[in-house]
């Protein structure tokens, strides 16, 4: 295009803005985190996913890079200017050969990528157990408003916003939610999975290294969603046993009342419990089924979930409807709390 007054000024402004932005970015890359969790796996699942990310990036780059270069070359070569030598052929609008080529290129690339993807999809299916000499340990996870509850059914202990796992041992996470849906994500160990009310999901992860890994809720769940972070401490087998024993002896048990207080919407600090109501996880999964914790027939009301539970109990205690269910539930509760606290 012809040079207009002001176009030089614009060019300089844009160059300065670009250079400044670039400088800022370089500084940010240097000053900020160097932990690209996803690309720096600490376990077999995350490693598999990282490999897949690398493979798919290379495969797509095979097309993308040449096309981008081609774009700039064509735009530059065929720009309109007086005395241009490049060929001008306004009626060149069809070529079966060329069009076959570029239907072909993406088809081939996508076919290859598709095969790779399908194989990895089955290999990395989250509910499939990780091959290992060691027996997996189980951790039950419940996302709540706005905290994470972790239960170790084999050890009988529980924790909030922090888990400790032995290294090199597969961990079988069973996940549900006692609040709006969330997503359980420890990027250094592997991809996320949703936590949903009324469902128990399974996710196998394993840490190959010791260390503290970053975990967070990845699916928006309301006001203080940003505070739903947790730590994953991967330690040696001995340290793990020591930790379990310490929790069992030094922490307080979690009663059903303690659990109810956790359901009050709000954030929470890291905590550990020497015991938890038996079958709590199952109760959370079946909470809204007839006879479940929530009383089966409750109606959504304008109250917050925590007060709602209290109200319901008093309400249904008086009403005739659902009395049977309610009684059953209460007995369950008492049984489980009793057995557990006495443990």
């Amino acid at each position: 295009m012809n040079k207009k007054p002001g176009s030089r000024l614009m060019m300089w402004v844009m160059i300065i803005v670009s250079v400044l932005s670039l400088a800022l970015t370089v500084w940010a890359l240097y000053a900020g985190s160097h932990n690209y969790f996803v690309l720096d796996p600490k376990g077999p699942i995350a490693a598999g996913q990282r490999d897949l990310i690398v493979i798919s990036t290379i495969l797509t780059a095979i097309v993308i890079v040449p096309v981008t270069i081609l774009t700039f070359v064509i735009v530059w070569r065929y720009r309109d200017k007086p005395g241009r030598k490049a060929k001008y052929d306004p009626d060149f609008n069809h070529s079966t050969k060329l069009e076959t080529i570029w239907w072909g290129i993406p088809i081939i690339v996508i076919a290859v990528l598709g095969i790779v993807t399908v194989r990895y999809t089955y290999a990395l299916e989250p509910s499939v157990a990780i091959q290992s000499q060691k027996q997996p340990i189980t951790i039950q996870v419940a996302s709540m408003d706005w905290k994470w509850l972790f239960m170790y059914p084999e050890e009988g202990i529980a924790s909030v916003n922090s888990i400790t796992i032995p290294e090199d041992t597969p961990v079988r996470f069973e996940l549900t939610s006692d609040a709006p849906m969330n997503s359980f994500w420890v990027p250094e160990l592997g991809g996320q999975i949703y936590t949903m009310s009324g469902m128990a999901m399974t996710l196998y992860l394993q840490a190959d290294h010791q260390g503290t890994f970053f975990g967070s809720g990845a699916n928006f769940s309301g006001e203080h969603f940003a505070q739903m972070r947790f730590d994953v401490n991967a330690v040696s087998d001995e340290q793990y046993q020591t930790w379990v024993n310490k929790v069992k002896t030094e922490s307080k048990p979690m009663s059903m009342e303690t659990y109810q207080s956790l359901t009050v919407p709000g954030t929470a600090d890291k905590q550990t419990f020497s015991a938890f109501p038996e079958g709590l996880f199952q109760q959370l999964v079946t909470k809204y089924l007839p006879g479940g914790l929530a009383g089966g027939k409750d109606r959504a009301t304008h109250t917050t979930p925590s007060t709602q539970i209290n109200e319901k109990e008093s309400e249904e205690g008086q009403s005739d409807m659902g009395t049977n269910e309610h009684d059953g539930m209460e007995m369950n509760d008492q049984e489980s709390t009793d057995t557990n606290t006495s443990n």
């Binding site: 996803v38 995350a46 598999g48 996913q49 897949l52 990310i53 798919s56 990036t57 797509t60 780059a61 993308i64 096309v67 981008t68 774009t71 700039f72 996508i110 990528l113 790779v116 993807t117 990895y120 999809t121 290999a123 990395l124 989250p126 997503s183 994500w185 990027p187 592997g190 991809g191 996320q192 999975i193 990845a218 699916n219």
Partner: peptide
């Protein structure tokens, strides 16, 4: 064109289901 090429590429990356477990919601 270049913007959409990159966006399209990352779209393909996201479609790789097992890898999406790491990209999702991020």
């Amino acid at each position: 064109i270049p913007c959409f090429i990159i966006g399209g590429m990352t779209g393909v990356l996201l479609s790789v289901a097992p890898a999406d477990f790491q990209y999702h919601n991020s």
